[in-house]
Design a protein around this nucleic acid. Structure first.
Length: 502
RNA sequence: GAGCCAUUAGCUCAGUCGGUAGAGCAACUGACUUUUAAUCAGUGGGUCGCAGGUUCGAAUCCUGCAUGGCUCACCA
């Protein structure tokens, strides 16, 4: 045997053994990748049904069941052995005796590897230590695992591998499966809440000819047949408002949005947004709706409204604070932006307080910077911050009493933003002016300013009723409700750079 | 984009002062018919992330690169 070949064998040691076992199964006429298996129970059902019964009662009753799952542990005892099979709801122990299944099937059991899928038909029993167990009479091979699973005790802890090979994380880390189950439930409960209130769920295009509705840089793609550039959407907003023009009155969409930005613990290039529009409502109605929606979903999914998040306990059930952005800034800094209102005054205050601002910054940008610098990180309990400056809110209605501000709010919990909402701007003349102001910012260097969407303005010209709109970052909400502090922990397959190996 | 840290067996991790690689689980062989992180005896398994450099000698020191993590910046 050459040195080279020896080396090759050593590298793939366990892979070779498992492939050999697969071949041996085939030689004995056992399909290593079997077919459908009709089970009578899930593991959790067996525990629920028989946990309370005694060993003797179960032995006497001899309930026949068929179960299936992935073998996670195995303890051989000579002519008998135990193993745990994992299925959707948990694990169930099996007890395999040579005298019960016969020589051939016992041999199959003995050579089965951790990770293989087995089907077991047998009777329900209880062990001396009181564990509900299926005593095997018929063993069916359902699938061979050709690679070994992560450590059965520690699970998979390699962070990178958890993200790249999420299936391994799900198999070996219970907390991970729980988290993604909750994610699914949260989205399901949002749908239920809205459907119960006669909102219509719709699907609008992901491919946009103009990337509008938010301040962000888009991903650009290309359509071959039309030979044109298209943008992946950065928001759902402008299409849903067209549907409000079209008379749908209550619409929402839950879907993926793409923003060409950096990646960190709270940002992934693609993320899930829920946007909702209600005709004849205003920003105050949306506040009520948002509070009730999140409270209801939290209660239904978690069974409580006092939720741990890191060091804090967030009280979702209490009445949420509603504070004007300018008042909050005044509380933290003593500066009253209701009084200092020219662009020059605001810029001077920024300089004085060491707040960095862009060259194109006007009054509203400065106010927003002050909020982000001095206030945002202090908002732990749910707080609606309303009254955003006009310059940073090109799609929101002006406030009637003070047109420097808009009828808009953002929801802050645990120092992060979860929702953004406003009384939608339905005046097409004003909307055009706002877009034009954005274009001016773009010329001055703001590469995230909105583009003018002429077709959207045309839609407004046909008349859009007064409308309350809302956007909720679903990923952030899932993070909050699962006490996750990295967006990658609640995205099944977060965006990753490719490696040589994968 | 910047700083700091990490990368060793399939997985979880040690590795001293620079002297050429270790454990547990997993795997293999054997024993064991109620175990449960099964146990007992034995065996095999390594491009120490990659590429250079320093050195008689590098997992270890230096440089660059890759991937990831954290912090900051950017960004809702």
């Amino acid at each position: 045997m050459s040195e080279e070949r020896q080396n090759q064998e050593s590298v793939t040691d366990q892979l070779i053994v498992r492939r050999q076992k697969m071949d041996e199964l085939k030689e004995r006429g056992v399909d290593p990748f079997g077919s459908r298996y009709e089970r009578t129970h899930y593991s959790a059902q067996l525990h629920d049904l028989f946990e309370e019964q005694t060993k003797e009662e179960l032995t006497e009753a001899g309930h026949r069941v068929k179960i299936a799952g992935r073998m996670m542990t195995k303890r051989g005892k000579g002519k008998a052995g135990f193993a745990h099979l994992k299925d959707k709801n948990g694990t169930i122990q099996i007890y395999v005796r040579k005298d019960a299944v016969g020589d051939e099937q016992y041999d199959t059991f003995q050579t089965a590897d951790l990770g293989d899928f087995l089907g077991i038909e047998g009777t329900v029993m209880k062990t001396n230590t009181g564990e509900v167990t299926v005593r095997a009479e018929e063993l069916t091979y359902l699938s061979k695992a050709l690679r070994p699973l992560p450590d059965k005790y520690h699970g998979l802890t390699n962070v990178e591998q958890k993200y790249r090979q999420r299936y391994l994380d799900l198999i070996s880390n219970e907390g991970s499966m729980d988290r993604f189950t909750k994610r699914s439930q949260i989205i399901q409960e949002i749908r239920r809440y809205l459907n119960d209130r006669d909102y219509l769920e719709v699907e609008t295009p992901l491919l946009h000819t103009i990337a509008g509705g938010a301040a962000a840089r888009p991903f650009i793609t290309h359509h071959n047949a039309l030979d044109m550039e298209l943008y992946l959407r950065i928001a759902i907003e402008l299409h849903l408002k067209r549907l409000i023009v079209g008379g749908m009155e209550k619409v929402y969409e839950i879907g993926r949005v793409f923003r060409n930005e950096g990646i960190d613990t709270t940002h992934n290039p693609e993320f899930t947004m829920m946007e909702l529009y209600t005709a004849f409502h205003d920003v105050d109605d949306v506040m009520d709706l948002t509070e009730d929606l999140i409270r209801t979903v939290t209660e239904r999914v978690l069974g409580t409204t006092d939720i741990p998040y890191g060091e804090d306990t967030i009280h979702i059930g209490q009445k949420w604070a509603r504070r004007h952005m300018v008042d909050l800034i005044k509380e933290e800094t003593g500066i009253d932006f209701f009084k200092h209102h020219t662009d020059d005054e605001a810029r001077a205050l920024a300089k004085e307080h060491g707040v960095e601002i862009d060259d194109y910054a006007a009054f509203g940008h400065v106010v927003n910077e002050f909020f982000e610098t001095f206030v945002e990180h202090k908002l732990v309990q749910p707080t609606f911050v309303y009254g955003h400056p006009l310059e940073i809110s090109p799609l929101a209605k002006k406030n009637q009493e003070d047109p420097r501000f808009t009828d808009r709010f953002e929801l802050f919990i645990a120092k992060h933003e979860y929702a953004n909402a406003f009384s939608e701007l339905n005046d097409p003349i004003d909307q055009r002016e706002r877009f034009e102001a954005q274009m001016k910012e773009k010329d001055q260097g703001n590469d995230e300013a909105h583009d003018i969407d002429e077709e959207f303005i045309e839609a407004l010209e046909y008349g859009m009723p007064p409308t309350g709109g809302l956007g909720i970052g679903i990923d952030r909400l899932v993070m909050l409700l699962t006490d996750s502090h990295t967006i990658r922990d609640i995205l099944l397959f977060p965006t990753m750079k490719p490696t040589d190996n994968h």
